[in-house]
Nucleic acid binder design. Structure first.
Lengths: 287, 287
DNA sequence: TTGCTCCTCACGTCACGTGAGGTGGC
DNA sequence: TTGCTCCTCACGTCACGTGAGGTGGC
């Protein structure tokens, strides 16, 4: 009679049995209860003993796999509570995309670690230069350090389109501005810009919306220590180190944002160079 | 004169300058100081201001990359303090190996998550069976959950060799015993065994050392609920869930270790089946 | 009656981030 | 004199693990 499932609505398991059936630790199961991720089917009023329904094994397995993938409990709760498949899959897809970005970062960390350990870098050539102000198509947004590369790809594409749509003439390679905080707290407003030549006679206006996220405005001129990094922007750390050192030695560093130019364009998949400009206060004619 | 590096032994940077040059946050740098991972070149006695030497930029970059790879600060300290290249590379290689194992686990989690979400599993066929005691070549060690698969590969190879070396006749597929704790706390003693037939007339001894980690001893008989999982041992969770549920419904679960058999051998890279045996107390003739 | 399972706090872990509250140099 | 940089606590985060100390059912 015990095995007659047509009579018993639900088979209840103790937390220990449930732990062995799902390969989740008892401590983890209690934690999931506290966090509202997986509520026991029943709780004994006097003893506090938890009981789990046999049909909860499926949910527990999903939780275990999502945790194996590093998904936070908050997201898992959302996934399990999702009303439809669409919302559920969206949350999971978003997490897998995060993981993919992380994997890319890991791969780049491995390769630059190899480079770092293979010996000292060739000292980059550093020159001091005055960079004049330009008018530019500009997108500025607050960005998280880890997402900058992915974000940049979309932003450069949008600038490219705006350049075509407006018919403005490009006046040099694309660039980007990173405030000091960007490196210190890995999150701040980043400005990406495409310098343009205004048609002769057109007056400069203070700032004008163009389309989507794109505005037309002036990008200030600076004096800077400049070095060309031979590889993509994701691995510029050695050149940053060299620049920061030289500026501390030979000039007065000032507060403005650090600037990068991408003379070969910006293509996360391919190879391109990155010109790094570290703002300084020139006290004498450089050379 | 400020730029004359032949006179100045070391250029010192403030923590802010050093932060911008290395892309490490000020908070992180202070933490690395507290942890003894990266000591500032100088500390002002009255103000407590930290100063970093320009040549410390290189170490900081290594630290940043190792942190990007998830290496704990303790290991990083070891790497940086390593007297020779050999020791340093050993530590890094060990970490990369850990990462590789983790990546494998992630990949398996993605694929079984896909399976879990693609709908309910076919109910496995479960039978109740009495498994007799056998004499076996045995290796037993305390193992961490995450490392079980890698550990198993070596262990099975060693058992295979011992089987050849002793000339004993195999008496069925290789198996393994997992105490309940193994699933509850993901770490405990795991026993792997190769059943053998003793030559006629040879008396059974209590336990005998054979070679390396291999012993010859009896593996106890049990009564068990048994199900064949169609895939490798790393993705048995659905079958475990079904078995745990059925045992709770239809039998009295007992305390002994859970047992797995590998009738197709054990090959982490390839495909093989896993037979799972959940110990029960049979109260009536099963059928 | 003795183990065994289960319970609830409370605290530890790890690598920082987040304020609070205060000081020194240009 | 006013910002700006830097300082030191102290506490928060996240997903549990690790005891301590105690209770209920066979």
């Amino acid at each position: 009679v015990k095995g007659d499932t047509s009579v018993m609505a639900t088979t209840l398991l103790t937390i220990g049995e449930f732990s062995r059936a799902t390969h989740l630790s008892v401590k983890a199961l209690r934690h999931y209860h506290d966090m509202g991720v997986l509520e026991p089917a029943a709780i004994d009023a006097s003893s506090g003993y938890r009981s789990y329904g046999a049909e909860q094994v499926a949910s527990a397995q999903v939780i275990r796999r999502l945790r194996d993938l590093g998904m936070p409990l908050d997201s898992i709760r959302t996934v399990l509570a999702a009303p439809g498949l669409a919302e559920r899959n969206r949350e999971i897809a978003a997490h897998l995309a995060r993981m993919e970005r992380q994997l890319e970062q890991t791969q780049s960390a491995v390769s630059s670690l190899r480079a770092l350990l293979s010996g000292p870098a060739p000292r980059p050539v550093i020159e001091f230069r005055t960079i004049p102000a330009v008018t530019a198509l500009v997108i500025a947004e607050v960005v998280d350090g880890a997402e900058t590369v992915a974000w940049g790809t979309g932003v450069f594409a949008e600038l490219e389109e705006a350049l075509k749509a407006t018919g403005l003439e490009a006046a040099g390679p694309f660039g980007a501005l990173f405030p000091g905080e960007f490196f210190e707290i890995a999150r701040s407003e980043v400005t990406v810009f495409a310098p343009v030549t205004l048609p002769a006679g057109q007056a400069r206006q203070p700032e004008r919306h163009v389309s989507g996220r794109v505005h037309l405005r002036e990008v200030a001129g600076i004096e800077a220590a400049v070095a060309m990094h031979p590889g993509p922007a994701s691995e510029t750390d050695r050149t940053y180190g060299a620049l920061g050192t030289v500026v501390a030695e030979r000039a007065i560093g000032v507060d403005g944002p650090i600037r990068e130019y991408y003379p070969d364009g910006f293509d996360p998949a391919g190879d391109y160079r990155t010109e790094i400009c570290w703002p300084v206060f020139l006290t004498r004619s450089p050379g």
